[in-house]
Design a protein around this nucleic acid. Structure first.
Lengths: 122, 122
DNA sequence: CTAAGACCTGACGTTGACGTGAGAGGCAAG
DNA sequence: CTTGCCTCTCACGTCAACGTCAGGTCTTAG
């Protein structure tokens, strides 16, 4: 498939796909005219990329650990990177949970105050 | 206290504090010479700001919902914003958990492969 | 009083993940 | 062949949350 179809099917912009390729996250065959062509599997690949981005990984990190996820190369150094990233994500989740709970308490208090027609307490 | 002390006590940079003020997130009294002075409560205030930032809120959003958290003004529209932000955070947590689990499976497989001296499986 | 720090206001730099044209070429239908 | 849509490669623009530098001022210890 060509880049436009991949973009819609993966739910990202065409520009993003070209960017991923530029970063070495995605490869493509080229037609004689220079147009990119992708296999079906590219859709899932893009999904994975997006998921890792969503996890807060930088494209450099993703590039580095892609060999493992895709090709099957694994070094101890890579393993270290992986678990480092894992704990970074874990920390981030913790922060978000705290922030969510904070927001929850604010919402609860605010809703109560609104219901009683009073200003929201501190 | 002055800005340097607040910065160290709140664990942020002086530049960040000035930026927060620029964004309307933080207020300060000024001395006759123009220097910023803060009350004790500013430390906690900065903490709250950081927590909301950590939750992925933009400074604009924080500005908007600060009146409720601080002053006690609450409107139904604000309540809507709050719960919208809450669900955004919830979604984000979900994404991160998925990414973490994905990474977990990769790590497990990779570690096993490394232990067996084989390439990591797909 | 004076020197050393801390602080002030601009104002430009940075980083990441794209957005947004500009100008040109590829490709299937009619 | 041509129309129309998709795609190509530069290459500059954007946005947020600050970093950093310059040039000048304030405060306080000695």
């Amino acid at each position: 498939m060509r880049i436009g179809e991949l973009a819609t099917r993966a739910g990202v912009s065409v520009r993003a796909l070209r960017y991923y390729e530029e970063q070495g996250l995605l490869v493509s065959e080229r037609s004689s005219g220079g147009q990119r062509h992708y296999p079906e599997s590219a859709v899932e690949r893009v999904w994975l990329i997006r998921q890792l981005y969503a996890a807060g990984l930088a494209s450099r990190s993703i590039v580095d650990l892609m060999p493992c996820v895709e090709n099957g190369q694994v070094t101890p150094e890579l393993l270290g990177r992986l678990s480092a990233e894992r704990s970074r994500i874990e920390d981030r989740i913790g922060e978000l949970v705290k922030a969510r709970d904070k927001l929850d308490s604010v919402i609860t208090l605010a809703a109560k105050a609104a219901h009683e027609g009073k200003p929201c307490p501190r």
